[in-house]
């Protein structure tokens, strides 16, 4: 078994939303009361009970013709996953085989650190359960040799679950075949993502897409500098104290302090 990628080919997606439904079904996620706001896109955003949505976007190309753009939004399964780095509980972890980012919800303590850290704004916190929710690439399925539920449901071949090398090759091939502004999204940042897109339009045309996702700098300062520093500093202090104690000894009153007391006498 090897590293795998879920490839989403936006140029093939018909926005049938079989994937969105399958995701709810497999993960036994409850539906919420939504409201029609004048778009097909519903629920409007990811939610604790919605691990993925299909974006619907009207787009008038500079050439003047109308297009309808679709995009699947879900956890990108970063190779350098900020969420895993910050997660204090081990609830978020790398799947050793596939390098996807799994989630053991039992462990989640609802600290929301991942919520802030994720450059794709993926994890969603649920007040009721005090836990965070996101796509785990159908961990229970992939570890049992099945496709993720969304991939299985996809009728058009827009979603595929592939070995990494193959996925990259296919994605490149599609970009060549489509020509124009087609491009691959996901291979160039956060160490490469395990949900990758083939986009037909330039990346910045897509609403809500992260143009330059990065593991926040702050996480480095936090996890790589300050975190060890906290113990080092404390250790340093204790060491210094030991030395101080040995060299200087405890701080005791000087004779004068007693003298004065004598002078004073009992009050």
């Amino acid at each position: 078994m090897s590293e795998k990628i879920k490839l989403y080919d936006a140029s093939k997606c018909t926005a049938c939303r079989g994937c969105q439904l399958a995701c709810k079904q497999w993960n036994a996620l409850k539906a919420g009361q939504t409201e029609h706001k004048g778009t097909y896109q519903n629920p409007p955003t990811l939610q604790p009970n919605t691990y993925m949505i299909i974006h619907f976007q009207d787009y008038v190309a500079p050439e003047g013709d109308v297009r309808w753009l679709f995009r699947k939004e879900a956890c990108m399964h970063c190779t350098k996953a900020a969420c895993v780095t910050v997660c204090p509980s081990g609830a978020l972890y790398y799947n050793k085989e596939f390098k996807t980012v799994g989630m053991d919800r039992e462990k989640c303590i609802g600290c929301k650190e991942c919520v802030s850290a994720c450059p794709f704004e993926v994890p969603r916190y649920d007040k009721e359960t005090e836990k965070v929710y996101k796509c785990d690439m159908c961990e229970t399925r992939i570890t049992n040799n099945m496709n993720p539920a969304c991939v299985k449901a996809c009728p058009t071949g827009a979603l595929k679950w592939l070995d990494k090398d193959e996925a990259l090759k296919i994605a490149e091939g599609r970009v060549q075949q489509l020509g124009g502004d087609a491009n691959v999204y996901g291979d160039k940042f956060v160490g490469g993502t395990h949900l990758m897109y083939v986009l037909k339009e330039k990346m910045d045309v897509y609403d809500g897409i992260k143009k330059d996702p990065k593991v926040p700098q702050s996480i480095f300062v936090w996890k790589n500098l300050l975190k060890p520093l906290s113990l080092l500093a404390a250790g340093g202090v204790i060491g210094a104290e030991l030395i101080h104690y040995m060299i200087r000894g405890p701080h005791k009153p000087h004779p004068e302090h007693y003298e004065e007391a004598k002078k004073q006498g009992g009050a």
Binding site: R17, K30, A31, T34, H36, K37, G38
Partner: peptide
């Protein structure tokens, strides 16, 4: 529920031109 969640109600699709004429906005 899953289907109703995705398409929760009756809608009418119209052009921007018509909407402008009738003072209608999305939603």
């Amino acid at each position: 529920p899953w289907l109703a969640e995705m398409q929760p109600g009756m809608f009418v699709e119209m052009s921007e031109e018509l909407a402008k004429m009738r003072g209608i906005k999305t939603g």
